[in-house]
Simulated assay, not measured.
Amino acid sequence: MRPWLKIFLIGLALWAATVLVTMWTDNSNLVPTVVLLGSFLVPVTFVVWAYGHARGEEVTVELMFKSFVIGGILGVLGASVLESYLRPSLVMYVGVGLIEEGVKLAALMLLTRGLKHRSVKDGLVLGATVGFGFAAFESAGYAFNAMFTGEGLSLAQMVETEILRGVLAPVGHGLWTAIAGGMLFAAGGRLTGKVILTYLGVSLLHALWDSMNGLAIAITLLLTGRPWQFQLIRIGKVPDVTDAQVHVFTALNWGGLVVISAAALLWLRAISRSAR
């Protein structure tokens, strides 16, 4: 059995067992274990898989560990500080995309500044590692916050959040930073015009991903909105929605995420092929 698959299956079994024991015993001491296992399982699995595709001798386990932990934490801290200056607006998602992709790229540049040899493939691997580190620490925060509800603590809601973020993790932060890392290493670690354009491109994908829920609502209203719904919106009230609109919204929301993911995967594939 391949190492990454073994890690995933063992980790999944341990996470499921911890969730069941926590539910059975109501032992709150196990909650951090549920959060950490659920948030780190998929990112760590993909990092192990990526390590098997690294080429350069300088891409060591130590460098991968630093990229995942240090790069991920630096990215989360930098994003938290910079995003505190953002205010709710239509362009907020663009700001979040620019900030988070920027801090991850900066962390990658910092951690790989001493490398003598750089290949595009190693840039893809190390970029993905930084991105998955960011995703793991960010998911732990989301899972922790999801536990607190208006009706008290909810283990079920925390678990649902971890499952959803785990399923979506492979086409999120790790993928976007892998693209930026590949182009960065193709440019010898320098901020060239192509690297900056790549950074702007993945930031746009990130912004579209984050805003897909709102975009799906707006498009659904434009396509299927009733006059009485627009009248309620004009006076600041939230209108009820029809069953048909719920289906349209769901299709647009998930369809948009699929399109964004497909575009990023095709971009990654093009960079990987060019490296060959």
Results as ranks from 00 to 15, higher is better:
80 S>T: 14
80 S>V: 01
80 S>R: 13
81 V>Q: 09
82 L>G: 05
82 L>F: 10
83 E>Q: 15
83 E>V: 10
84 S>V: 10
85 Y>V: 12
85 Y>T: 12
86 L>V: 08
87 R>F: 13
87 R>T: 14
88 P>C: 08
89 S>Q: 06
89 S>E: 12
89 S>K: 10
90 L>A: 14
90 L>V: 13
90 L>Y: 14
90 L>T: 14
91 V>L: 15
92 M>Q: 15
93 Y>N: 13
94 V>T: 13
94 V>Y: 03
94 V>A: 15
94 V>K: 00
95 G>P: 02
95 G>E: 04
95 G>C: 02
96 V>D: 04
98 L>R: 06
98 L>S: 03
98 L>E: 02
98 L>Q: 02
99 I>F: 09
99 I>C: 11
99 I>E: 07
100 E>M: 01
102 G>M: 04
103 V>E: 08
103 V>K: 02
104 K>C: 05
104 K>E: 06
105 L>Y: 03
105 L>W: 06
105 L>I: 01
105 L>F: 12
105 L>P: 00
106 A>M: 10
107 A>I: 01
108 L>Y: 08
108 L>M: 05
108 L>T: 04
109 M>P: 02
109 M>K: 12
109 M>F: 13
110 L>I: 10
110 L>E: 01
111 L>H: 04
111 L>W: 07
111 L>M: 05
111 L>D: 04
